[in-house]
Amino acid sequence: MKDIVFTVTHLKFLNKDVFELKLTAPEPLPECRAGQFINLKVADASLCLRRPFCLYKFDKTSVTLIIEIVGKGTRLLAQLKKGDTVTGVMPLGNGFIVEKQHQNIALISGGIGCAPLLAVPLTHPNKNVCAYLGFSDKSKTVLVDEFKKACRVKVSTDDGSYGFNGYATDAFLDDFNSGVFKPDVLLTCGCEPLLKAVQQISRQLKIPAYMTGETRMGCGVGACLVCACAVHEGGKTVQKRACADGPVFLIEDVVL
């Protein structure tokens, strides 16, 4: 693997706190999968740790990320200008493995948790995909049009200011119970309450579900063991490395 020096080719704000960052590599990139991530260096020597971000879109020579400003590192990344360089290692982690028999796929997300899911319909154009995208309110909705280009979409807001009134999991159950969509697999990303809700749905409906979470990371490559994710395995709870064994896990197994 390599440390890649990317050039910023595009940076656009999608709302007050969320921006899209396109990075172009000087040479062809390794093959990527939805759900994999990049560990990006931040240009401030006092911020030693790299920042992990899911790959939102990717092609032979570029990756695009969707980044929410939450602290010092993301604020610095937001100040990048076209032509600046940033260093990162990618693709890391397992990503979503879409199995052959999983023809009907439901994506369930909260907030910008939708970002890593878009690559699923984009890289599997022959699957029947429906995205249930939840946001807290209308001002927070992002990427809806991008999803609409790739698959069916149902938007929900917690306060009902746009789309379905409720959580993304409620919107999904609404469709499921009325027989509109019976998926073979659920793929999800978002905050912990959402993940817990999907875990419950997966158990009740007996539909396998895969999640990707946001565990704090160090090396990002499997060597330092700081990214523990507790998983049930063979009757025991074991600590898996979110960066190398994940970040995608079968939700059934995860201790949430």
Binding site: A45, S46, L47, C48, L49, R216, M217, G218, C224, L225, V226, C227, A228, A230, T237, V238, Q239
Partner: peptide, 19 residues
């Protein structure tokens, strides 16, 4: 198995770990 939960925190020019 080590400690459960968050094991790393960034600090100015360094990091804390509790693996």
């Amino acid at each position: 198995e080590g400690n459960a939960g968050t094991r790393i925190a960034e600090t100015p020019s360094g990091m804390l770990n509790a693996v």
